[in-house]
Amino acid sequence: GATAVSEWTEYKTADGKTYYYNNRTLESTFEKPQELK
């Protein structure tokens, strides 16, 4: 079976905060997504 690849990509803001962006739902969040835990 195919492994589900996380759609979340980790980015940093200009002031160094980490956030996560989902390229399928176009959602962004500062909290670590469930799929990455």
Rank of each mutant, 00 (worst) to 15 (best):
G1T: 13
G1Y: 11
G1I: 14
T3G: 14
T3L: 13
T3V: 14
T3F: 10
T3A: 14
T3D: 14
A4Y: 05
A4Q: 13
V5C: 15
V5E: 12
V5S: 13
S6A: 12
S6L: 09
S6Q: 11
S6W: 10
E7K: 03
E7W: 08
E7S: 05
W8V: 01
W8Y: 02
W8M: 00
W8E: 00
T9A: 11
T9M: 12
T9F: 10
E10L: 06
Y11L: 15
Y11G: 06
Y11D: 03
Y11Q: 09
K12G: 02
K12W: 06
K12A: 05
K12D: 03
K12I: 11
T13F: 03
A14E: 10
D15Q: 05
D15H: 04
D15S: 09
D15P: 01
D15M: 04
G16K: 01
G16Y: 01
G16Q: 03
G16F: 02
G16L: 02
K17V: 12
K17H: 07
K17T: 11
T18Q: 04
T18A: 06
T18H: 05
Y19H: 03
Y19W: 11
Y19P: 00
Y19A: 09
Y20P: 01
Y20D: 00
Y20R: 00
Y20V: 00
Y20A: 00
Y21R: 07
Y21S: 03
Y21I: 11
Y21D: 01
Y21K: 07
Y21H: 06
Y21N: 02
N22R: 01
N22F: 01
N22P: 01
N23K: 11
N23A: 11
N23P: 06
R24E: 07
R24F: 13
R24I: 15
R24V: 14
R24H: 08
T25Y: 02
T25K: 01
T25Q: 01
T25A: 01
T25S: 04
T25L: 03
L26F: 15
L26C: 15
L26W: 07
E27Q: 11
E27F: 04
E27Y: 04
S28I: 15
S28R: 12
S28Q: 11
S28A: 12
S28Y: 15
S28K: 14
T29E: 02
T29G: 03
T29R: 07
F30H: 06
F30Q: 06
F30S: 08
F30Y: 09
F30T: 09
E31D: 11
E31V: 12
E31L: 09
E31W: 05
E31G: 03
E31M: 08
K32W: 03
K32D: 04
P33N: 02
P33Y: 02
P33L: 02
P33V: 03
P33H: 02
Q34C: 15
Q34Y: 11
E35Q: 09
E35F: 06
E35N: 09
E35T: 06
E35I: 07
E35Y: 06
L36A: 05
L36E: 06
K37T: 14
K37P: 09
K37A: 15
